[in-house]
Design a protein around this nucleic acid. Structure first.
Lengths: 195, 195
DNA sequence: AGCGTTATCTTTACAGCGACAAGATTGTCG
DNA sequence: CGACAATCTTGTCGCTGTAAAGATAACGCT
């Protein structure tokens, strides 16, 4: 972790801090996240992050924004492997939503269950909004309005949040293939026109 | 807040601390929750909570357990006012789930989105399990299995979590009556046999 | 009633935290 | 080459949670 460094100036401390911050987040969770620990991980003094991110909130804000990009990437990955039909694409996106939450539970919680990032920050706001736009556009493709988008979002989010917290044992205990099928079926219940 | 007290012994400090802790939770959120602040609120020294709750985690654990009781109460309140048919009762419980999250967002987050309570604690575990049993029994009444329970839970939880975080503007901007109708309709999408 | 024991609460102390200010070092641009 | 700005370090402050030791009150037993 603690990158060795011979020069007084780091060179690319901003990126190194983001990496260290994600490690720290994964290791300690949002609630025990420590800025000084991040600095230690990056092999730098405790006050070094100030110039790059202002304060701890600034760092967590940047991290959350990056999280939303990866969030969309996780959905894209699923979409690329799925049938191009709009409904199948929407299902894929939902599965990507769940993938992300289970693979990066701490980051997911930072993005959806924390007050520490500054969601009014333009960069973070844009990243979060882009994620919502993606969902809304996909729902529109299958003929749904904003309320339909809320339906799909709620189901995907509920599954993701509960699963990443280790609840929903009935689903977690399923073998991998069966789990995918069940998740897809549950997600599709929330689609417009399946009520 | 700071209860006046003439005696050295408080008399009912445990209950007073729980009250103060909930105020503090509501005011500051889980992430900025401070044990010393709770003690100040209760008009007592910062180390007084130790004997009653051990540490901060102990206090938050007790608070979360109490939260699960109120959580069930919020659902019961809705159920009592609803049609006694099993499906209507399940819908009512879902609406109570959402009511609770919106009325007590910080407590909701403590219960479902925090690592600070000790969920292995017998008291908290029993309270949380009771809430799950209630859901599972209601789902059984309408002919659903454990996977169906996961479906209903995920939808209710997704709506509750997103709404309590101020997302889902499409639903939040609806007038009260319309919002209730939409929420009921969305919840029922997740019921067994409506796919 | 009186005395010892225990429960409850306060005081004091310590390490870790985030934020700030001041100083040290380095890169940049005139 | 020299001044300036950017970057990083050191030191300090008030806050936090936890632990230990002391003060006070309630309880139980004789």
């Amino acid at each position: 972790m603690a990158e060795d460094r011979r020069t007084y100036h780091h060179g690319d401390l901003r990126a190194a801090l983001l990496r260290a911050a994600e490690e720290e987040l994964q290791a300690s969770g949002v609630e025990a996240f420590s800025l000084r620990q991040v600095a230690r991980r990056a092999g730098v003094s405790h006050a070094a992050p100030t110039h790059h991110f202002g304060d701890a909130r600034g760092l967590l804000t940047a991290l959350a924004a990056e999280g939303f990009h990866r969030f969309l990437a996780a959905q894209s990955l699923r979409e690329a492997r799925a049938d191009p039909a709009p409904a199948a694409q929407l299902t894929a996106a939902g599965l990507g939503y769940v993938d992300f939450a289970m693979e990066r539970p701490a980051l997911f919680r930072l993005m959806f269950g924390s007050d520490r990032p500054d969601f009014a920050d333009p960069v973070l706001n844009e990243a979060a909004t882009a994620a919502y736009r993606h969902l809304r556009d996909q729902v529109a493709e299958v003929g749904g309005d904003e309320v339909a988008a809320a339906s799909v979002w709620a189901m995907a989010h509920g599954l993701a949040d509960l699963l990443s917290n280790g609840r929903l044992r009935a689903i977690l205990s399923l073998p991998e293939a069966a789990r995918q099928d069940v998740l897809a079926a549950l997600l599709e219940r929330a689609f417009p026109g399946s009520g």
